[in-house]
């Protein structure tokens, strides 16, 4: 397929997705699944920093997702803070826990680090289940407010009759909010990848001894990566809290980490754009299996078998993922485009 046609198709598809919720035939269930996909897109992009960019296996990503969600939920219930204040606070809290976990453990390599992160995510779930005074434990946190855009203070100043106050009801507004978050994280990921920070991460992934001999402080850059990754996970959690308006500890079980990791591997380790596709495929597959499995008289938990099978097949046939590409973002940087042109002409 020629590249022009390909980009045209890509943008047409994007535009179709963009306007879909506006049509009257837009199905509420489909929109719900799309919002879910977007949450996982954010999560998968954020996770990609650790196993993809830095080459460290992280099995505890869901812990930061849970921290972000409960931060948002509790701040909403107890203090009634606005979503727009909560997102940065949740990101900050995620990053703090990322540093607290990362600074002592990122000296570990390979399997040891994976085990520590796994333990961390279990610890988060245990905390959420048992610290009933704070989280209400297994009863969960109901009654979280939806996202509200409140500009009434501004509108009444302009005209006493106006009331710029929107409460998010139904999936449409969340769809666009989710799209905004995905776009934001996408841009941040792209810019990080094509920078001194991203190159340092890729250097660590490719050869950590050579990286340190180039002057990259291994621990510092791993901790920075871990904190940023955790912050992105926490933002996804904050969105989840204000969208589902209910949280419970079992939403953050270990298998979620595994699912997100599957998305990253499916899309290609180190290629954050692939993570988008990985998230879309696996969430859609989950929904399809939800219909197929009961029809076959199988319990819905059987879907984990399908995810496991996908991982095995990936390892056998596509060990690099469907879109194996790392550090390609810089090709779009005007500095390199100019360099390429100069080299071509001389």
């Amino acid at each position: 397929m020629n590249p022009n046609l390909k980009t045209t198709l890509k943008y047409l598809l994007l535009a179709a997705v963009f306007v879909y919720p506006l049509f009257s035939f837009a199905n509420e269930y489909v929109l719900h699944v799309m919002v879910l996909i977007m949450i996982y897109m954010v999560l998968a992009m954020g996770l990609n920093i650790i196993p993809g960019f830095c080459g460290l296996l992280d099995l505890g990503y869901v812990g930061f997702y849970g921290i972000g969600a409960y931060t948002a939920g509790l701040l909403t219930i107890h203090f009634g803070l606005s979503f727009w204040v909560i997102v940065p606070l949740a990101a900050l809290n995620g990053a703090i826990w990322g540093v607290l976990l990362g600074a002592p453990t990122l000296r570990l390599t390979g399997d040891y680090f994976a085990i520590v992160t796994f333990g961390f995510s279990e610890l988060v779930v245990l905390f959420l289940t048992n610290e009933i005074w704070l989280t209400r434990g297994p009863l969960g946190l109901p009654g979280i407010d939806p996202v509200i855009i409140d500009f009434s203070w501004l509108s009444t100043l302009i005209h006493p009759q106006w009331d710029w106050y929107w409460e998010f009801i139904g999936p449409q507004p969340y769809f666009y909010l989710g799209l905004f978050l995905v776009a934001l994280v996408y841009v941040i990921m792209g810019r990080m990848e094509d920078s001194r920070l991203g190159r340092a991460w890729f250097a660590i992934r490719e050869d950590s001894i050579a990286a340190s001999s180039c002057g990259v402080n291994l621990l510092t850059y791993k901790v920075i990566g871990f904190a940023i990754s955790a912050a992105i996970g926490a933002v996804a959690g904050a969105f989840l809290a204000r969208w589902t308006m209910f949280l419970s500890p079992d939403m953050f079980k270990f298998w979620e980490s595994f699912l997100i990791l599957c998305m990253v591997v499916l899309g290609g380790l180190g290629n954050f754009k692939g993570s988008l596709v990985g998230a879309a495929i696996l969430i859609a597959l989950g929904e399809v299996l939800r219909i197929i499995l009961p029809a076959l008289n199988l319990p819905t938990e059987t879907r984990f078998l399908a995810y496991g099978m996908i991982m095995v097949l990936m390892m056998r046939f596509k060990p690099m993922g469907f879109f194996p590409a790392i550090a390609t973002q810089s090709r779009k940087n005007p500095i390199l485009i100019k360099l390429k042109k100069d080299l071509g002409s001389s």
């Binding site: 190159r199 890729f202 250097a203 490719e206 050869d207 001894i209 050579a210 990286a211 001999s213 790392i326 550090a327 390199l336």
Partner: peptide, 9 residues
Amino acid sequence: RLFSALTVL
């Protein structure tokens, strides 16, 4: 010891 998956630049 190069970063072999990355470009020369």
